[in-house]
Write a protein that binds this DNA or RNA. Sequence first.
DNA 1: GGAGGACGATAACAATTGTTAATTAATCTA
DNA 2: TAGATTAATTAACAATTGTTATCGTCCTCC
Lengths: 172, 172
Amino acid sequence: MAEWQKFSHLFKREEIPAKTRLLHEGEIARKVYFIEKGCCRLSFNNDGKDITFQFFFEGEGVSSAESFRYDKPSLYSIESLEASVVHSLTKADYLTIVESSPLIKQDIEEQTFRRLAYVEKLFLSRIKNSPEERYKELLQQYPRILQRVPQHYIASFLGITSVSLSRIRNRR
Amino acid sequence: MAEWQKFSHLFKREEIPAKTRLLHEGEIARKVYFIEKGCCRLSFNNDGKDITFQFFFEGEGVSSAESFRYDKPSLYSIESLEASVVHSLTKADYLTIVESSPLIKQDIEEQTFRRLAYVEKLFLSRIKNSPEERYKELLQQYPRILQRVPQHYIASFLGITSVSLSRIRNRR
DNA sequence: GGAGGACGATAACAATTGTTAATTAATCTA
DNA sequence: TAGATTAATTAACAATTGTTATCGTCCTCC
């Protein structure tokens, strides 16, 4: 949205190497990030196993929303998958922007709502489909993810082991 | 929130028999409901199988948020599990309220955000845990659900068949 | 009160995934 | 580029869940 341009001076451009955590699980999110180039994943640790549950790419905003908003420990980490360029915004600056622009306040509310709808869909997809079906869905709808993201992260995202994904891919 | 009292005349009290759909999958949600007494489930049809993915009880508001907001076909149904008493609000009245009360607008934004956080947690729980673990989690955290809701809905909610849930319950 | 349907338990078998381990392929990085 | 690390494939076996079917019980509704 154009309105955001007015506040571009509050953003900080950051160059992030691959496999770098922008936020660690358990920490409080102090910033939100907008991805100019590269991609990230959200993940958490489950009994020693690292589980990926979402990916973000160019043009998308990433944060640990609940942590950022309520200053609670984040349930998950944010990590770059590739060398990336992001623009970060601190909470103080974020609040300044929200308070000075009703348009942006409205935009954020809208984005929150859309994100809710997205997470609901992601949730329903996981309920509805088998791992194999989810893989095919991913293949159809988001082939770019499969091309860019290492397979074991995909497996984790699909809720299976990399061994099982390998089997599914090589069936038939 | 007290502010809501001012608009109580816009709500319509409805008595709903058990197993009655307040909204059918594919329809556009024209109302939101607040449960005074009873409970509901959200469900959808998957290749002929009826799948339950959420429950609502007294004091909670239910709707198909995306459908209600954007006038899109709902991805799921809302159905009473028991004979219930709900208070419904049409979209027109909803919009009237939101526009006439900044406090309520703020409250709804907050609720949307909390719901996002809740759905994210629900999603993470489903990723993290096995069906057996999810059953035990439910047993610990929401025993009231197990007491009130027939077992096959629980099974569906846990992502397994009622046969498998029966097995899990009778293990050891 | 009786009939029909819904609900839950159980059994047998099939299908899928997890686990572990060994091998090959790909990719850092010094 | 060579060596080392990480990633992906494959195989064998175990564990879990799904599927189908049967049975008994309870509830609901004429």
